[in-house]
Design a protein around this nucleic acid. Structure first.
Lengths: 220, 220
DNA sequence: TTATAATGTGACCACCTGGTCATAATTATG
DNA sequence: CATAATTATGACCAGGTGGTCACATTATAA
């Protein structure tokens, strides 16, 4: 899972932490704004006020820098998820979804640029190691929800007349769109999710989950 | 609504139809694959086997060519929608959604590159006239569904405890994700929508609509 | 036929890209 | 101090970009 081996040169590792941080920060900002291919190394070094040659003594090339940035992204994701989701088999399935959604909101609030980088990777075709990058951050979705759904269906707690696959799809679709809309207000379809107060945000999440529950619960 | 004024030069309009078509076709292919900014005029003329100067006698610049392509896209969209959706106030709300989804599927099958161009525009930030382009193709969604939902709520046919805005959001989210997943299999989250037989496709659509109905209908 | 208008062409331009490398400045070591 | 190792630098490179323009080619008209 962690075999991406985004390897900075030792020169980078010898740098003071503040400088390393600022390099990553500006790189993230550039990749967030432009995506991988259009991101400009010239831009990054200009923002940092360092020579281009310096950056190439920290990282092998553009791809290496990008992979390092993305790995740092997956770390933050894991942190946030661990801190927000009560792990292991959850008592209430829909409570879990709520926790995941809340974690997503919190992540976007805290690391908006990182989330933009992720969205760019998803929509860009020719990103190095694109598939494994996306896979590495699919903790939730598919691999996580699928077995849970199948369990619940066996227990008769979830509608049995539709495939677990489809249940996961609908869950994923709603969550995906919700977080995208929050991260990029121009995509939220008039929901005005961005700029919403946290408490109201939770209310919207509750509503969504309520609809999902009504739609997906086993009929009485 | 149609004030985009994507204006080819008269030289382009004097061209034989087949040549005009092939030019648009290759331009669409390039914009679909690369998005607006990364799309290469050099690539397009190379594919067409014409000189770069020629293209610039057909269109003022890259932006003008792109706007022409996009306008041609909106035309095809309107054609498809008109041919697929029984217009005016529909008898069954969820039947309407089914028709819109089917129209989307048909459009993607018939004009996959055009749909990719649209998706690129949505995810790209710096596309000329991006906002109005996106708005010009939002016949359905928002402006269309919102008043319908409000009507249904007044008639007590739709849950009254959630805002019409939220209903539209959930509808839009599901439809959006479904069509995206169909157009780009790598995004469908294991649903394997692409390559699915049309009849099975309709089945999946029915399932989704059934879930939405259960989730959104007025509780008994 | 000749004169005129309309098209087609590709070398060329300024600018940008990721990446290199000889050199300079700095730091660590003896 | 001097020597050696490490790090910083930016001119430079090949290759790409959107766009131009003087010129060649073709079609139209008289």
């Amino acid at each position: 899972m962690e075999n991406l081996l985004a390897s900075p040169k030792t020169t980078f590792l010898n740098l003071p932490v503040s400088k390393r941080d600022s390099i990553v920060r500006e790189a993230v900002a550039e990749f967030a704004a432009q995506g991988y291919q259009r991101a400009s190394i010239n831009n990054i070094v200009k923002r940092l006020g360092i020579a281009k040659g310096s950056l190439y003594q920290y990282f092998e090339n553009k791809e290496s820098l990008f992979l390092y940035v993305f790995e740092s992204f997956t770390q933050k994701v894991k942190q946030t998820v661990k801190a927000s989701v009560s792990l292991e088999r959850p008592t209430d399935f829909f409570l879990l979804i709520k926790q995941v959604l809340s974690a997503g909101i919190r992540f976007i609030d805290e690391y908006p640029d990182y989330f933009q980088v992720y969205m760019q990777v998803v929509s860009e075709h020719d990103v190095p190691q694109r598939d494994s990058l996306i896979a590495s951050v699919r903790l939730f979705s598919l691999e996580y929800f699928s077995p849970l759904c199948e369990d619940l269906q066996r227990q008769g707690k979830l509608r049995n007349d539709i495939s677990a696959q489809m249940v996961v799809f609908i869950l994923d679709a709603t969550m995906d769109r919700f977080l995208r809309g929050y991260a990029r207000p121009d995509l939220d379809g008039g929901m005005a999710l961005a700029g919403m107060q946290p408490v109201q945000m939770l209310g919207e999440i509750d509503t969504i989950i309520d609809v999902l529950r009504s739609g997906l619960l086993a009929q009485s």
